[in-house]
């Protein structure tokens, strides 16, 4: 039984158009034209209890709109949504008591008061029994290392500290589904790691279903085995990250350390990505045969000290995915791609 079912979901926005041009000022005074913009179109997927799903796409792809429909904030224009057996917008409050929502850019804590005050209020708003509240609060405090932070006014917290508190609060009522809208935006590496660890633990230990939107694909790689990719309001991929990589990540990166600088090397099956003298990096076709062919042809002419491989980074895979669909994707040259990829791959 799916915990979330979305079928042929669509959402149009009505916008008031301002009239430009010479007498636009006067004309806007008297008329109001509206136009319709489709933000989400014909999206279908379902999510099982306990899954962790990354929901990604470029800016304006319709991620937030989908999340808003799943949380009952927006009413769909077309299609159907079912969350925990009910339509969220029709039973917004019932739905709200069973889900947790964290907005990366909108705080739900009381800015000038100690964090614990917001937690206490949350307890009353969600009507959590005192023992369950205390148990959950202490568990989150421990896992997220909140400790003394709970007694500090929110305004004194760093962004990372605040986000940890937001997360803890969203889980106090033990929601069955946790929605996270860009939870790691603007955070430093350490804060991101902490939050990712926590989300993995929550997903594994409590079986909380996680739906996460982000622009940092490392979030996805570390938390979500499954991704749903949308672009321009439509679904373009739904499945495991690994199989997406296998499908689209057709090249792997081979770094070779030579005993001496061999000078410029040209090999037909490989592209030279970076040349640091003794260390050279090539892009090679993914198949074992081509990798071996490249290695043996190099090793035959120059003594090799060490060889290392790197899998394609998720960024590259996703970019290939967008590009393959002929959609606009930010340009970047080959070297830049790989160098950024290296940060992510192990």
């Amino acid at each position: 039984m799916s915990i979330i079912t979305v079928s042929h979901l669509g959402k149009d926005y009505r916008q008031i158009r301002r009239i430009d041009g010479r007498f636009g000022a006067v004309r806007t005074l008297f008329t109001r034209q509206s136009m319709t913009r489709t933000a989400v179109d014909d999206i279908s997927f379902s999510i099982e209890p306990g899954e962790a799903v990354g929901y990604i796409g470029p800016n304006g792809a319709g991620k937030s709109t989908t999340i808003k429909m799943l949380t009952g904030i927006l009413v769909p224009t077309r299609g159907a949504v079912e969350v925990l057996g009910v339509e969220p917008h029709r039973h917004r409050r019932r739905n709200a008591s069973r889900i947790g929502v964290v907005f990366g850019q909108r705080s739900q804590l009381w800015w000038d008061l100690p964090v614990i005050e917001s937690f206490e209020l949350h307890r009353h708003v969600y009507d959590i029994p005192p023992e369950r509240y205390r148990a959950m609060r202490d568990r989150c405090t421990e896992l997220l290392g909140l400790g003394d932070l709970l007694q500090s006014p929110v305004r004194q917290l760093s962004l990372g500290q605040r986000m940890r508190c937001e997360l803890a609060m969203a889980l106090l009522h033990q929601p069955e589904i946790l929605f996270l809208d860009e939870p790691t935006i603007g955070l430093d590496i350490e804060a991101k790691d902490r939050i990712r660890d926590f989300l993995r633990t929550v997903n594994r230990e409590q079986g909380t279903t996680i739906i996460l939107t982000t622009h940092d694909l490392a979030d996805i790689e570390e938390i979500c085995p499954r991704i749903i990719v949308i672009n321009r309001g439509g679904l373009i991929y739904d499945g495991a990250i690994q199989s997406l990589k296998a499908q689209l990540g057709s090249q792997r990166q081979v770094t070779i350390d030579f005993e001496d600088d061999p000078g410029p090397i040209t090999i037909s099956q490989a592209t030279l990505l970076s040349d640091q003298g003794r260390r050279k990096t090539f892009a090679v076709e993914r198949s074992v045969e081509s990798t071996l062919a490249v290695l043996s042809s190099i090793a035959s002419s120059h003594p090799v000290q060490d060889v290392s491989f790197a899998e394609p980074a998720i960024e590259d895979v996703i970019r290939t995915l967008y590009a393959g669909l002929g959609k606009a994707v930010p340009e970047s040259d080959e070297l830049d791609r790989w160098s950024r990829g290296r940060v992510v791959t192990q």
Partner: peptide, 18 residues
């Protein structure tokens, strides 16, 4: 405009009184 109204709408309480 800023979308902060959404934080009220994800609460299981009446938005007006909240």
């Amino acid at each position: 405009q800023r979308g902060t109204l959404e934080t009220v709408l994800v609460k299981p309480t009446d938005p007006f009184w909240t």
